[in-house]
Design a protein around this nucleic acid. Sequence first.
DNA 1: AAGTGGTCTAGACCACCGC
DNA 2: CGGTGGTCTAGACCACTTT
Lengths: 269, 269
Amino acid sequence: MTLGGNKLSTRTAVRSSRTRGGRRVYRPRVAVDRTSPVPLYYQLAQQLEAAIRAGELTPGTRLENEVELADRCGLSRPTVRQAIQHLVDRGLLVRKRGVGTQVVQSEIRRPIELTSLHDDLLAAGREPRTSVLELGPATADERVAKELGVPAGAEVVRIRRLRRTGDEPLALLTNYLPRDLIALTADDLTEHGLYELLRGTGVNLRIANQTIGARGATAAEARLLDERRGVPLLTMTRTAYDDKGAAIEYGTHVYRASRYSFALTLVER
Amino acid sequence: MTLGGNKLSTRTAVRSSRTRGGRRVYRPRVAVDRTSPVPLYYQLAQQLEAAIRAGELTPGTRLENEVELADRCGLSRPTVRQAIQHLVDRGLLVRKRGVGTQVVQSEIRRPIELTSLHDDLLAAGREPRTSVLELGPATADERVAKELGVPAGAEVVRIRRLRRTGDEPLALLTNYLPRDLIALTADDLTEHGLYELLRGTGVNLRIANQTIGARGATAAEARLLDERRGVPLLTMTRTAYDDKGAAIEYGTHVYRASRYSFALTLVER
DNA sequence: AAGTGGTCTAGACCACCGC
DNA sequence: CGGTGGTCTAGACCACTTT
């Protein structure tokens, strides 16, 4: 069934049943709006995700098969597959040929995303505060030059910030950016995350390479982070690239291990 | 053009040219084998990846547009898109609507995958050696029970291993598995990685939640790892799920930070 | 206006799984 | 064997970017 120009939504009732084998099959209530600019596959994916997070679709439940779901939604099977694939990629669903699609038996963590620490803290409701320790031109050493794809010795912008939540120091952030990429003031950086500022000037970050490790705090780091020298710190270095594949930012960050860790979800492809 | 039952490969010449704008466009040499059981999109993806890694397709190069590439390969556009999407997901290519597809300006790191440390070390050519410190039944405490989805106090299998490369201690691995999932011997674990053994018994791992942090070594850890007490260690806890969404393994690992770090590639979706 | 990727359709055949 | 997801086709129209 195709709605074509019909402006009404497609509505389907919720039905849950058992197959002959006794496994629970869930036929979610779904309604897509064909007048919305939001892609149909994305609407479907969001509704399925909402059902899972609301506990309507409980872990271990088998999802209705793709063909049937497509029929009920008035969508083609490829579109339904695209929606399900989106959730599989994010670790909420698991598919197996010849068997079906099931809800994963796990609490779902928000994976590490291409966001700044500032955004992460905001999202977690933990008011980030930033002190700008340094903001200005610097000479690219070999490492920075290689990561940013500029000649060694070229002038770049260096930013050093101390980030707190409440009054507790959390991390020491050092970033390098190509010169002339963006005009920044210390005030900007105090109020906003670096990635937020970059997005605001039309930079679209797409890919980042990260390395996560650990080491003891230097005396200077310890002083700034309100710790003792040698205390274990979590380190992260990251190079981020935009939608043209050009290097935008190279950063080396250290976090107080007692107050910060990385969570991520891996999905077999 | 469709080859149908034709057993010959589709061959296309390599052509590189410049558009009016002067940007380099690369038309890769591609050849798909329709008699192979390997999916067409995957064959194409592998050839594009090979071209990139071989430096034929250099960073910043713009890839031929999808329609043209599809024509030259004798494939449909959705199939070509699937191939390109595969590489975009892995961080080798970047796409932008209205612009095109470009090779990312970065050295490509192999992202963290759903593999064991044993496999990683093997792949890196750094001969892993394993000592089994413990292998046997244990009682699930609250944490383990929650992660594995069993009742608190239930019997599970606990494995403790020390992993070395050459003679250098590298990591201390503690894993919990549901009872009766797999029959393991210390010999198995000395010779093979845990994930390899699981795969061998038909377990298909699909999803894992990981947390990465840091802390100082305890006295016991320091002794086993040939370090001093309090030295910074990198920690990773992971819960892995199979293709039915059931929890298979919960592990808490510590690594010598001086000899190990995690590398990963993030892709904006 | 021209060129690009983004979305979507309505089918088709196949491989794999469990009964 | 029937049911499931995996792959593939040959189009179509649209949104966005650049010229």
